[in-house]
Amino acid sequence: MSVLLFQILPVVILLILGFSVGSLRERGHFRSLARREQELSDIGVVNLRTVAQPESVRAATLVTGDAVIATDYFKGFMAGLRNIVGGEVRSYQTLMTRARREATVRMLTKARDLGATEVWNVRYETSNILSGAHKKRVAVSVEVFAFGTAVIRG
């Protein structure tokens, strides 16, 4: 009985810690994202390959942004359970959303710093290059890399 307790108790503690701290941090991140996205909302984001009205372009340059975000223990555990029955893995949806929005915000911040008003040909790359390192752990992390061409009109 006590052996069982010693095996289950740490997992339960980690699950509670992951759930409470994890959701708190996630909410904080989403709030911060919403605020920064609002600030950057006047920058036009397009994924067309060719810039429209090229005659008025003063300068164009590559801008990039990336973010590596890890999920918490609780969500990793829930996703593990989901693997048994199949279906949509909701707990990882927020992970991907956070990484993608963060990378976009970072790219747009760089565009803003350059004085750009638009970013063209926006592309996303997702990689799980860290998966090998975390194979034994429950939680996973994802890297999203966003890039595009910042355009300064003048």
Partner: peptide, 16 residues
């Protein structure tokens, strides 16, 4: 550091 972050979630700043 990443191992610890994996418990509570969030950005892995070192990797970024």
């Amino acid at each position: 550091a990443a191992g610890f972050k994996n418990l509570v979630g969030g950005e892995l700043r070192g990797y970024t």
